[in-house]
Measured scan of single mutants.
Amino acid sequence: MLEGKVKWFNSEKGFGFIEVEGQDDVFVHFSAIQGEGFKTLEEGQAVSFEIVEGNRGPQAANVTKEA
Rank of each mutant, 00 (worst) to 15 (best):
F38A: 07
A67N: 14
F30A: 08
Q45G: 07
A61D: 08
A67R: 12
Q23Y: 13
E50D: 11
A61R: 09
E3N: 15
G16W: 02
I33R: 01
G16H: 00
A61L: 09
E43L: 15
A32E: 07
F15R: 03
S48P: 00
A61C: 05
S11P: 14
A60P: 01
G22V: 03
S31M: 09
E42N: 10
E19H: 14
V28R: 00
A32V: 07
F49P: 00
K5Y: 07
G14K: 03
A61Q: 10
F30K: 07
K5C: 05
K65W: 10
G22D: 07
F27V: 02
Q45N: 08
A46C: 05
K7T: 05
E21W: 14
F17W: 07
K5P: 02
V26H: 02
I18S: 00
E12C: 07
S48R: 14
V20K: 07
E66V: 15
G14E: 01
K39W: 06
N10S: 13
A67Y: 14
F15N: 03
A60L: 02
I51T: 06
K39A: 07
E21V: 13
F49W: 02
E50A: 12
Q59Y: 11
R56I: 09
A67K: 14
K39F: 06
N55F: 15
A67I: 15
G54T: 12
V47P: 00
E12V: 12
V28F: 12
V6Q: 01
P58E: 05
I33N: 02
A32D: 15
K13I: 08
F30V: 08
G14I: 01
K65M: 12
P58G: 06
A61N: 09
F30H: 08
T40M: 10
A32Y: 05
K7R: 12
N10P: 02
E36I: 07
K39Y: 06
V20L: 14
G57A: 05
G22F: 10
G35F: 09
E19C: 06
Q23C: 05
F27T: 01
E43T: 14
E3V: 14
E66A: 15
K13F: 08
I51F: 06
D25T: 06
G16E: 00
E42W: 13
G14N: 03
I18M: 03
E42P: 07
G22L: 06
W8C: 04
T64W: 14
E19T: 15
S31C: 04
I18K: 00
T64V: 13
K13C: 05
Q45D: 14
S31I: 05
G37C: 05
S31Y: 06
H29T: 04
F9G: 00
Q45P: 01
E53W: 14
F15T: 03
N62Q: 09
L2R: 06
G57P: 05
D25E: 06
A32F: 06
